[in-house]
Simulated scan of single mutants.
Amino acid sequence: MVRMAVPDRPVVVSTLVADGLVGSFGLGVAAEVFAYDRRHLGLPAFDFAPVTEHPGLVRTDTGLAMSVEHGLDRLVASDIVTVTAWERLDRAPSPAVLDALRAAHARGAVVVSQCSGAFVLAATGLLDGLRATTHWRYTGELAARHPAVRVDPAVLYVDNGRLITGAGTAAGVDTLLHLVRREWGAAAANALAREMVVPPHRDGGQAQFIDAPVAQVQDDLLGAVLEWAQAHLADDLTVDLLARRALMSPRTFARRFKAATGTTPHAWLLTQRLAAAEALLEGSDAPVEEVARLVGFGTAAGFREQFARRRGVSPRAYRQTFRRAARQGDGDRAA
C-alpha cells in the first residue's frame, strides 16, 4: 500500500489542466477533496494547486476564464497528480506534458486520471499492459488509440497502485474518495463523504448508467431488503434468503438486483462485508477472528484471504497502519 502522508510537510497535490479548455467539474472535484483543511477528519494537510503547461489565463468548458499560476515543474514535486478531462481529444498532449507526468510517476507520485484524462495518461505509455477505464462514451476510442491498454468500460475506477483511472464526470468523486480510503482509511473517507454530502462508496460500475438511470433502490422493496442485509451481515445471507424477503424468485431477484445496482448480490455483499470489517479494524480492538464473524466471513482464514486480495494488505497490517495514522492525526489536532 502506498503511503503518501509525509509527517514534516503537507502532501503536495497538483491537478493538470489543459491549456486550451479546462474540465471545470473535474477541477472542482479535486479542489473539493484536496484544497481545504480537513485535518479534523483525519486527513493530512494538503498543498493543492492547478497546473498547466503555459501558466496564465485558461478558459474552462463553462466559458469562464481562470488564472493558473503553476507550470509543469510543480508536477515533478508532487505527491499526487490528478489529470482532469481532456476536452479536446483531437489535440494530443504535448511532449512536455507527457514527460512531466512520466517524471512525476518515476519520482513516486500517485497519478490519477478523471474521465477523458485517461487519454493523457495512456499517451505516456504508463498504462501499457494495465487495466484502465474512462467515460463509457470514450472507451472504444481509448482502446483503438492505445491497444496496449486493457480498457474496462464497466467500472467506476481502476486502481493500479500509483496509477488510477476514473470513469466519467461524477465518477471522479468515487475515484478520489477511493484514494482517500486507500491511503488514510475508511473513517476519514466516510467523514469526507459526509462533508461533501455524497455516498462514501457506490456499488457497481458505470455500466449501470449507459442505457438508463439507476433505480432509486431505497424507495422500493429491494432497497428495504438491502438495508436489512447491511444490518445482518453476520448471518448466512444467500440469494434465496434475500429473494424470499423481497417476495421474488431467486432469478427475478438477481435480475432486479443487477439492474438496480450494476453488480451481483454476491459482489455487493462482499463489498459491504469488507467495508464493515474496515470500520471494525479501525475503530475496535476486536480480534481478527471476531471481526470475521461479525461481518459474515465463514472463517478467519477466508476473511484474511479476501481482505488481502481486495485491499493488498492483511487485516492486521491494515489495523496497524490506520490506527497509527489516527493516533498521529489526534496528536496533530491536539498540537
Rank of each mutant, 00 (worst) to 15 (best):
Leu270Trp: 04
Thr261Ile: 03
Ala259Met: 01
Ala243Lys: 01
Pro250Phe: 10
Ala243Glu: 05
Trp268Pro: 04
Leu269Pro: 10
Arg244Asp: 15
Arg245Ala: 01
Leu269Ser: 06
Leu270Ile: 12
Asp240Gln: 13
Ala246Thr: 00
Arg251His: 09
Leu241Ser: 08
Ser249Asn: 00
Arg255Tyr: 01
Arg273Lys: 15
Val239Phe: 01
Thr252Asp: 14
Leu247Val: 14
Thr264Cys: 11
Met248Thr: 13
Leu274Val: 15
Leu242Met: 15
Arg273Asp: 12
Thr261Ala: 05
Arg256Asp: 13
Arg256Glu: 02
Gly262Val: 03
Val239Lys: 07
Asp240Arg: 14
Leu274His: 10
Arg273Val: 01
Arg255Val: 09
Lys258Met: 11
Leu242Lys: 02
Arg245Val: 06
Leu247Phe: 14
Leu269Gln: 10
Thr271His: 04
Thr252Arg: 13
Ala259Phe: 08
Leu241Ala: 15
Arg255Gln: 05
Arg251Ala: 15
Leu242Glu: 05
Ala254Gln: 13
Arg255Thr: 13
Gln272Thr: 08
Lys258Asp: 07
Val239Ser: 05
Arg245Glu: 03
Ala243Thr: 10
Thr252Met: 13
Pro265Arg: 05
Thr252Asn: 09
Thr264Trp: 08
Thr271Asn: 06
Phe257Leu: 08
Leu247His: 06
Leu270Gly: 10
Gly262Gln: 08
Gly262Ile: 09
Lys258Phe: 11
Arg273Glu: 03
Ala259Asp: 11
